[in-house]
């Protein structure tokens, strides 16, 4: 379980996270939804210890983030993060060199799934294919948790479909997934838990299926109430 307790974060005088608490469980897909703002990305960065927080606690299965845990938690940001001069193949070799949890067999499977050409140089790939390379680097690790930042932003509809497929596929298996998005429509049926965020605060945290069962509301219905009300 990834747990955030009363997390505060300021950029200069601007409060970005103002007492955030929520959990993302294993074997569940948790979706951090926010209409705008930097908060969502900051939360993922903070979980990965890529940016300091001013107050609060973040733990992963009860432990603070440390070097070895990067073998157990993968983060897929929405910017390209491998060297542009690398080929896909070289990028995979790089990962294999450092991560004990790199799964070469699965990596090959993902390359096939996304129809990537491993001899392509990363800088020459389209935006969609760069996003796929990013996903490849995260999904091929045998991790317990996968964090994805805006996996659907700025990519074509076919790539989007492929990425959506990932969530219900063996590639995700029983891992805990935490994704951020502002476009929930496409994945409403895929997620377990929704955390609604705005202005650095959590407005509501609920299970999507329970919400449909007990209140007969879709995720978008709830969002409409929260953000318009």
């Amino acid at each position: 379980m990834i747990e955030l307790k009363n997390v505060h974060k300021r950029f200069g005088r601007k409060k970005v996270l103002d007492g955030i608490s929520f959990t993302a469980n294993k074997s569940e897909i948790t979706c951090l939804v926010g209409v705008n703002g930097v908060g969502k990305t900051t939360i993922l960065n903070a979980i990965m210890n890529l940016t300091p927080i001013n107050k609060g606690d973040i733990t992963i299965d009860g432990k603070k983030m440390h070097a070895n845990l990067y073998n157990k938690v993968a983060f897929i940001p929405d910017v390209a993060i491998m060297l542009p001069s690398m080929t896909v193949h070289e990028a995979m070799d790089f990962m294999k060199d450092y991560y004990s949890t790199w799964n070469s067999k699965r990596a090959k499977e993902i390359v096939r799934f996304f129809r990537l050409n491993i001899s392509d140089t990363i800088s020459e790939l389209s935006k969609g294919n760069q996003a796929k390379v990013n996903l490849l680097m995260g999904l091929a690790l045998d991790v317990d948790y996968i964090l994805m930042d805006e996996p659907f932003s700025g990519i074509d509809i076919f790539t989007r479909e492929q990425i959506t497929d990932v969530f219900s596929s063996r590639l995700v298996e029983d891992r805990g997934v935490l994704i951020t998005t502002h476009e929930i429509m496409d994945i409403e049926h895929l997620i377990d838990k929704v955390v609604l965020l705005d202005n650095g605060k959590i407005y509501k945290e609920f299970n999507a299926e329970e919400m449909r069962e007990t209140e007969g509301k879709s995720v978008v219905d709830v969002m409409r109430e929260v953000y318009n009300g």
Binding site: D165, S168, S169, R170, H189, L190, I191, D192, E209
Partner: peptide
Amino acid sequence: RRQLANELKINPNTVQR
């Protein structure tokens, strides 16, 4: 369960349920 979740594009936990 996994296959069905993938084909229907829904959450595997939902299929399990």
